[in-house]
Amino acid sequence: MNWWLAAGSLAAVLMLAGIAWALRLGGENRIATPADASRIAEDWIAGFEAHDAVICSNGSGALVFGTRGSVALIRPSGARFIVREMRNPRWRSSESGLEIETGDRTPVRLYLPQAEAAALGARLDATADNDVSNSRA
């Protein structure tokens, strides 16, 4: 490789990325329904069985409660989703919703009414202590 090829390759990289933007490829994903959230969690986490799901008000995140005490957090990432399985996650409720630490650098925020966020946080704590499948049998 010579310097001209390197410079040409870099220019091509930037050009292609620019064209991808110009063509409006990708787009932002949204989670439309709890059923969607459940299916995404089951698809991405081996052995995960969804019990029920809560999606946030703008569809930018969801919590899926499993039947065996684990919880999946889903958030869009470009045109795809990031799914994290959690046990006993740390959370904080505020006026804008529920903030959950997943182990990634930035916590995930679910936009929910504050009362609903607090209740969901309490359920996260309860889920960590109890096997959902037993408690709901």
Partner: peptide
């Protein structure tokens, strides 16, 4: 369109 994502 979802086959490509500009940032990816």
């Amino acid at each position: 369109r979802s086959r490509y994502c500009p940032r990816d």
